Simulated assay, not measured.
Amino acid sequence: MSLIGTSIKPFTAQAYREGKFLTVTDVDVKGKWAVFFFYPADFTFVCPTELEDLADNYDTFQKMGVEIYSVSTDTHFSHKAWHDTSPAIGKINFTMIGDPSGVVTNNFEVMRAGQGLADRGTFVVDPEGVIQLVEITSEGVGRNAMELLRKVKAAQYIAAHPGEVCPAKWEEGEETLAPSLDLVGKI
């Protein structure tokens, strides 16, 4: 079953952000756009490249009113240690959720059965807490923050412009489509 169009489920988790431990809940997420960025584990290989890419683009996400939550089944203590020892992870200013219980990972249905690790799952959540985008990639396929930015811009655009849709490769400022009987068979 697809999670698109469903509300995020309740959770409470410990997190690390900018030198502090904090508690994050589903209620904290609502009210603005959010990206949940699941990855298998701290101190690994592809994960730090993805998280560094997000960190390098975090200001752009923030200007768009988007908060980022990276999530793995590691603890918030592990996130702090990784942040303190890795130059790539040390760039991160967004919230790093620790999910050793697997509640958040299971809520988003990206827990690897029998492994206790998250798949590479990306979820865009609107201000009402409804999932608007889901992307899951295999272990060795890293994600691209610029492509994620493009998809978030498209999701925000269609949310603000009911009746319009964004075609393939749409970039902000480009023409959109207004689906109608007149377009059937003409694209």
Rank of each mutant, 00 (worst) to 15 (best):
I4N: 06
I4H: 02
G5V: 05
T6E: 11
T6D: 07
T6A: 05
S7V: 02
P10M: 07
T12S: 15
A13E: 07
A15L: 03
Y16I: 02
Y16W: 14
R17S: 10
F21C: 02
F21V: 04
L22V: 08
L22Y: 00
L22K: 10
D26S: 15
D26W: 06
D28I: 04
V29M: 06
K30H: 04
K32N: 12
K32Q: 13
K32G: 11
A34I: 04
V35S: 02
P40W: 03
P40V: 06
F43C: 04
V46D: 03
V46F: 04
C47D: 02
P48Y: 02
T49S: 11
E52N: 10
E52M: 12
A55T: 02
N57Q: 14
N57P: 00
Y58L: 10
D59L: 11
D59M: 08
T60I: 12
T60A: 08
F61C: 04
Q62N: 11
K63Q: 14
K63T: 15
V66K: 01
E67W: 01
E67M: 11
I68R: 01
Y69F: 14
T73D: 00
T73S: 11
S78T: 13
S78V: 09
K80D: 01
H83F: 08
T85I: 05
T85D: 08
S86Q: 02
P87I: 07
P87E: 14
I89T: 00
G90M: 05
K91Q: 08
I92M: 09
G98H: 00
P100R: 00
P100D: 01
G102A: 06
V103A: 12
V103R: 09
T105I: 00
T105R: 01
N106I: 02
N107R: 08
N107W: 07
E109H: 11
V110K: 00
V110M: 04
M111T: 01
M111C: 02
G116T: 07
L117F: 05
L117A: 04
R120M: 05
R120K: 07
R120I: 05
G121C: 07
T122I: 14
T122G: 04
T122D: 04
V124A: 05
V124I: 15
D126Q: 07
P127M: 06
G129L: 05
V130D: 00
I131F: 04
Q132C: 08
Q132W: 04
L133Q: 09
L133Y: 13
V134T: 14
V134L: 11
E135R: 15
I136T: 12
G140L: 14
V141A: 10
G142I: 09
R143C: 09
N144S: 13
M146L: 15
E147V: 06
L149V: 11
R150V: 04
R150M: 09
A155V: 13
A155S: 12
A155N: 09
Y157W: 14
Y157D: 09
A159C: 07
V165M: 12
P167N: 10
A168Y: 09
K169M: 15
K169E: 12
W170P: 08
E172P: 08
E172F: 14
G173I: 13
E174T: 15
E175A: 15
T176H: 13
T176M: 12
L177T: 09
L177V: 14
L177C: 10
A178F: 07
A178G: 06
S180P: 07
L181R: 14
D182R: 15
D182T: 13
